[in-house]
Amino acid sequence: MSAPIIEFKNVKKCFGETVIFSDFNFKVEENEIVSIIGPSGSGKSTLLRILMTLEGIDGGYINVAGESLWHMPWQGQYVPANSKHLHKMRNHLGMVFQHFNLFPHMTVKRNITEAPMRVKGVSRAEAEEFADKLLQLVGLADKADSYPNDLSGGQKQRVGIARALAMKPSILLLDEITSALDPELVDEVLDVIRNLVKEESFTMLLVTHEMYFAREISDRVCFFDKGAIVEEGEPEAIFTQPKEERTKAFLNAYIGQ
């Protein structure tokens, strides 16, 4: 069996006095789809943000695709990564945000082509051709020349997905991508992800509150609480026969809604 594509070893993370992770260990295999569920403030989003290099760590190691994410070898030792190393590591990763974070001053198409052109040096023709394909995939071919502020929330998030895919990441991080949406817009976004995983294999790490979606799409579900994985396993097992009391309580609260 090949080495895991993501590996957290003894990771420590604090925000000032607040300890998020004290000794966190976690692995994701290549092409595995992992859902992270759990109460808010349990460190779910922080996990993704650390992987995307939006947050640093205070201890431990993280490996991504066989290389250390936050450290780099230097004179036979591992030292904190410089911006060049982080730049290289980010090529593996793509992220879709809860609040979309589309660039409001660019058209939908520019949002998708800007990074491939500027960061990867892809030609304009090639970038636009790929953007058209992605817009087709997310069902927004007719919105290429619109500006983000003219789109609905669901449309914005579909652009957000297309924008992340444009960089061809091997690992896709989805951070509560439907939490900011009106309920009736949730499915149009989730359908995009459903189609996506049908067509291609991805390593995907998603933080979500949509339990039925997590159950349907994941290879593995992790229940998070207070900065630790309380319980993990196949979705059917977690959702139908949770072992831990905290998992049961959490899932009951959701079903109750």
């Binding site: 979309f100 974070n101 660039f103 960061v119 960089m167």
Partner: peptide
């Protein structure tokens, strides 16, 4: 908004591209 910085980091823009673009 902070999200604009985060999105531009996630898309791997360099810090000067982030600022100017």
């Amino acid at each position: 908004p902070k999200g604009q910085y985060e999105a531009s980091i996630a898309l791997n823009f360099t810090s000067s591209q982030r600022l100017w673009r």
